[in-house]
Amino acid sequence: MVEVFKPTSLAEALRIRADKHAIPFAGGTDLMVRFRARDGMAPSFKSPILFVDALPEFNTIRMFNGGLKIGASLPLSILAGDRGAVNGGTGTGATSGVVPDAAVLATIPGVLKAAAAEVGAPALRNRATIGGNLANASPAGDSIAALYALSAEIILVSLSGERMIPIEKFILGPGEISLKEDEIIHTIHIPAPLPDWTYWRKVGTRRANALTKISLAAAASIKDGRVESCSFAFGAVGPRVIRVHEIESLLQSRFPVVQEAKLKEIIAEAKKFASSMITPIDDQRSTAKYRKTVALNLIGDAIASLVEELKLGD
């Protein structure tokens, strides 16, 4: 049988985590699949389970110095703005049922909201959490690609304190994260300034309940008609989400030069940078060739959309 803990405070959760190395369990939508067993048999967990979904502080979302702090157990349905989304309502302990502030929800960057909205189906999004999506560390994880584009930082807590780590350092490989045996993912920090423009395109295997074949998450801050900073992150085209920093410096240096001829040249150059960095594979969902070709097509689409935004700002 599987040993199960339902702590009612963060301190208790951290103690159990440190003593038992119990695996933190929020919505369980990935864990229950990963440790799936046949009918009539219990899931094959190798360690005790630590339910963290019922701790109120894991279910909050708030502004912080112009950025956002998102509790690790916040369900994706809240980020997606789903109708009927339930926060912390998984009923495994002292349910928090925290109702997020509408004004705060309105500041969620479009890329994160759109990415969350394309995960699974409504029922799954009500259980699946942003921290869980991170911990699963799939290169096809939709909220992960968005968080790369938003330069998110991950706050990890343990009995010995707190540490903050950029998402690019937190995710080590498929299913591998920089999380010590006594640590719990506590908060996702999206630093200021929140972007003025974002782009999200998921190419999935179908229109809902679909896994990602390729995705592009992008964001930019715009000042005086110029790109002050921007980011381009590709999902499912390598062992990790890939951020192509060369595209970012290219766009920062060139814009607002937006004549059509120039634009074509910039897109071609951006594609060249991305082309050398993305290394997709053939698998049961798609082909390497398709993933690469579409990833490059999406760059053109995203840059064209950014240019439209700059024109609007003129």
Binding site: A210, L211, Q284
Partner: peptide, 23 residues
Amino acid sequence: EVDSKGQFRQITMADYMVPTSVD
């Protein structure tokens, strides 16, 4: 599809794409 042993490659609901109500 089948793999090198003639076994199906898409054998989960995540991989075999039967249409949903929104497709």
